[in-house]
């Protein structure tokens, strides 16, 4: 009996959520029209143009552009950078938001501000900063070389894939933690304290008590982080100069377009369509996550 009532309440809540008056009268219709027009001109037409241009010369050319060696290499680098950036930032984002919301310590506000640096610093500057630190003249280069000597490896941090990964990590750093912090803050610490009082260890508290609260926010943060990671241009541009080796998809698009020939421009659009496709996938995922997250609240 009780259960039925609960179900009904949920249903009525949903209805309430969808309620809203239909636009009547001149002003609302005009505003709506302007909004839609703006949306079409600024977002839909340009993206449709990308798809149209990429397919203009026929599927064969499209396929060739996608399967070109440089494109595949760029796709690979993009995916590597995205996956590593997402993993690293998920881990550190979780740590940072856990620390910032569940504990009290000195310098908490400073840490909270530091997390946001990538939002305020232009990506190009971030890339250049890496160049200054790890480049040929950078102060960190001798240390990197020493580590390389010691490990018998040959890792270079600029003009290489690791550099691209680092730059991507820098730019996408705040996404996960910024999604998590409000959720964790709203949840408070009472449940964690209850778990601690019952004798649970830190890891158990996180797995059993904190995680169920934040899982949708976490997934949402990861999706945003991924979207930003594979679209990044500026920061990566500063540390990646070798086409076919360290170029990511956005850099490849730029290079093709800058080549200027009719053929390469078509190729640029074909490669762009790959990014558009990835964006659409992300958009759909984001919608699903948002919907499911809301339903559980």
């Amino acid at each position: 009996m009780k259960k039925e009532i609960v179900v009904k309440e949920k249903a009525s809540n949903q209805k309430e959520g969808k309620r809203g008056t239909k636009p009547h009268g001149l002003v609302p219709c005009l505003l709506l029209g302007v909004g839609v027009l703006f949306f079409l001109i600024m977002l839909v037409f340009p993206l449709a143009e990308v798809i149209y241009r990429s397919l203009k010369e026929g599927l064969e050319v499209y396929g060739a552009a996608i399967m070109a060696e440089n494109t595949l290499s760029a796709l690979k680098v993009t995916l590597i950078a995205t996956i590593i950036a997402v993993l690293v930032n998920t881990f550190f984002g979780l740590c940072a938001s856990w620390c910032l919301t569940k504990f009290d310590f000195r310098g908490k506000n400073i840490l909270s501000t530091l997390i946001d640096i990538p939002f305020s610093v232009s990506p190009v500057i971030a890339g250049l900063a890496y160049l200054m630190v790890f480049g040929r003249m950078g102060w960190a280069t001798p240390y990197v070389e020493k580590i390389n000597e010691f490990l018998g490896t040959d890792i270079a941090l600029v003009f290489s894939v690791p550099g691209v990964v680092l730059a991507t990590i820098f730019v996408t750093f705040p996404f996960v933690s910024r999604e998590l912090i409000p959720v964790m803050q709203a949840q408070g610490t009472a449940e964690e304290e209850a778990a601690v009082m019952l004798g649970a260890k830190g890891s158990t508290v996180f797995r059993k008590v904190t995680f169920p609260h934040i899982k949708w926010a976490l997934l949402y943060g990861i999706i945003l982080c991924a979207a930003r990671a594979f679209g990044e241009f500026g920061a990566v541009y500063a540390v990646s100069k070798a086409r076919g080796k360290t170029f990511t998809l956005p850099l490849e698009v730029d290079a093709l377009y800058m080549a200027g020939s009719a053929e390469s421009i078509t190729q640029a659009f074909a490669v762009s369509s790959l990014l558009v496709l990835l964006s659409i996938i992300i958009l759909v995922l984001k919608q699903i996550v948002e919907y499911r997250g809301k339903r559980e609240l």
Partner: peptide
């Protein structure tokens, strides 16, 4: 806290929601 052998009833109860 967890090893002091104390049961704690929180204000607003802090039941595990999930």
């Amino acid at each position: 806290a967890g090893k002091r052998g104390i049961g704690f009833v929180f204000q607003n109860y802090a039941l595990f929601r999930y």
